[in-house]
Deep mutational scan, measured.
Amino acid sequence: VTLFVALYDYEARTEDDLSFHKGEKFQILNSSEGDWWEARSLTTGETGYIPSNYAAPV
């Protein structure tokens, strides 16, 4: 399992994006889409796309 942590807060701009807060942890589901990764929040259980430059490996 690849775990990442949010470096900044992010507010979803589309219904496919995932809103999150700094410090929140994610499981990365798909990182082959370039700058946007499909991720599941370990806090909320929700799935959506996150900007890859807002996350770092745990």
Rank of each mutant, 00 (worst) to 15 (best):
T2G: 13
L3M: 11
F4C: 08
F4G: 04
F4V: 11
V5S: 04
A6C: 04
A6L: 03
L7S: 03
L7V: 06
L7E: 04
Y8N: 06
Y8C: 11
D9I: 02
D9F: 05
D9K: 04
D9G: 06
Y10V: 01
A12H: 05
R13T: 13
R13V: 13
R13A: 11
R13L: 11
R13M: 12
T14Q: 11
T14H: 14
T14D: 11
E15N: 12
E15I: 10
E15Y: 09
E15S: 13
E15A: 13
D17E: 15
L18A: 01
L18D: 00
L18H: 03
S19W: 02
S19A: 07
F20L: 05
F20R: 00
H21V: 14
H21I: 12
K22P: 03
K22G: 03
K22T: 07
G23M: 02
G23D: 05
G23N: 05
G23F: 04
E24V: 03
E24W: 06
E24I: 04
E24G: 02
E24P: 00
K25F: 15
K25G: 05
K25N: 07
K25A: 07
F26H: 00
L29D: 04
L29A: 05
L29T: 06
L29H: 05
N30L: 06
N30Y: 07
S31R: 13
S31C: 12
S31T: 14
S31W: 14
S32N: 11
S32E: 11
E33K: 14
G34V: 11
D35N: 09
W36R: 15
W37T: 03
W37C: 03
W37E: 01
W37Y: 09
W37G: 00
W37N: 01
E38R: 09
E38K: 11
E38H: 13
A39C: 06
R40S: 06
R40D: 02
S41A: 07
S41F: 04
L42D: 04
L42T: 07
L42V: 10
T43K: 12
T43I: 10
T44R: 03
T44H: 03
T44F: 01
T44V: 00
T44C: 04
G45Q: 08
G45W: 06
G45N: 08
E46G: 07
E46L: 15
E46V: 11
E46A: 13
T47Y: 09
T47S: 09
T47W: 09
T47V: 15
T47F: 08
G48M: 02
G48W: 03
Y49Q: 09
Y49H: 08
Y49N: 09
Y49C: 10
Y49I: 09
I50N: 01
I50D: 01
I50T: 00
I50E: 00
P51I: 03
S52T: 07
S52F: 09
S52H: 08
N53Q: 11
N53M: 11
Y54S: 15
A56W: 09
A56G: 08
P57N: 05
P57H: 06
P57L: 08
P57C: 06
P57S: 07
P57R: 05
V58G: 05
